[in-house]
Computed example of a mutant assay.
Amino acid sequence: MTGGPPSRRLLLVHAHPDDETLMTGGTIAHYLAAGVDVAVVTFTLGEEGEVIGPQWAGLAADGGADQLGGFRIGELAAALAALSPDGSEPLAPRFLGGAGRWRDSGMAGSPASRNPRALVQAPLTDVVEALIGELRAFDPHVVITYDAAGTYGHPDHRRVHEACAAALARYTGETGRAVKVYESITAATALRAGLAAAADRVPAGWRLPGPGELPSYPDDEITAQIDVSAVRGRKVAALAAHATQVTVAPSATEYALSNNIVQPIGTVEYYRRVDAPGSGRETDLFEGVR
């Protein structure tokens, strides 16, 4: 007598702690609640993050202690626990090559980007080899990554996209097994609607974004959307767990990073499939997976 049906496996690759919640937190919680085997692999500890408020400011790279990365491991663990179903084993952080293997590169042109340990300074072959190890160990059906622009141009996001594309090409070539690949993106119409709804409740000291200040994609480029309304509270709790980087508005319907620009917390997360052309808009990333 055999066991139960084989598990569906979803792998998400992210550059820094908090990216997993900001971009895909609802999707993580949605599929964990559905019993899917989920893994989140983070490439750096986010050492160069801009710390919000004075309480932990001294941990930052330019704050003296340079201990922010270690602290953010705890934030990531708390966020993943918030995204996990009640009564289950909390999803645990996984770091590419082990925690601290590569360092947050900071923004393009910053001194951090020239650090020998920065992710952007690492030979791409080394990063790809480490990611192939994760792929072999987890054997995912679906992978979520960034677009070529790295969402908003962060060098580490670009490197994650580049390494993921190269690793998947080798992995699928070796195994002969198809993997569905999606880029996490923002839908322009949903972004506009969320900002319009937030216009009359902007917290003091925050501001609405200027035109084009937040990246988004035309609706006709969206090929998948996941309704995360049932787990939206988990995403809000996970955002709050990343307290050095994220502030959740009193309404719990918006958040801001250290720049205090309002961003909506939507009930749908959007994706673009890149491994194969599709027709229509999927509502399940595992659609067609056997």
Rank of each mutant, 00 (worst) to 15 (best):
M1W: 12
G3N: 05
G4M: 10
P6T: 06
L10F: 05
L10D: 01
L11N: 05
D19N: 14
G26A: 02
T27P: 09
T27Q: 06
L32N: 00
V36Q: 05
D37H: 14
A39G: 11
E48A: 14
G49R: 01
E50T: 06
V51F: 06
Q55G: 03
A57H: 11
A61T: 11
A61H: 06
G63S: 04
G63I: 02
G64S: 11
D66P: 06
Q67L: 11
G70Q: 10
F71Y: 15
L80F: 08
A81D: 03
S84P: 01
P85M: 05
P85W: 00
P85I: 07
E89V: 13
A92P: 05
R94S: 10
R94Y: 02
W102C: 10
S105H: 01
S105I: 07
G106E: 01
G109F: 13
G109S: 01
G109T: 08
S113H: 04
R114H: 14
R117C: 01
D126R: 04
G133M: 10
G133H: 03
E134Q: 04
R136E: 00
H141G: 13
Y146N: 12
D147Q: 12
D147W: 15
G150T: 14
G153R: 14
H154F: 06
H154C: 07
D156I: 10
H157V: 13
H157D: 13
R158C: 03
R158P: 02
A163F: 02
A163Q: 12
A167S: 10
R170H: 03
T175Q: 05
T175A: 01
A178R: 15
V179M: 05
K180S: 15
I185S: 04
I185Y: 00
A187K: 14
A188Q: 12
T189I: 08
T189L: 06
L191Y: 00
L191Q: 14
L195K: 07
A198P: 12
A199T: 08
V202L: 08
V202W: 08
V202Q: 09
P203N: 04
W206L: 08
R207F: 04
P209F: 06
G210S: 14
S216E: 11
P218T: 00
D220E: 11
I226C: 07
V231L: 06
V246Q: 07
V246L: 11
S251A: 12
A252E: 14
L257K: 13
L257R: 14
P264S: 06
E269C: 09
R272V: 08
R272W: 07
G278M: 09
G280R: 03
E282D: 15
L285K: 04
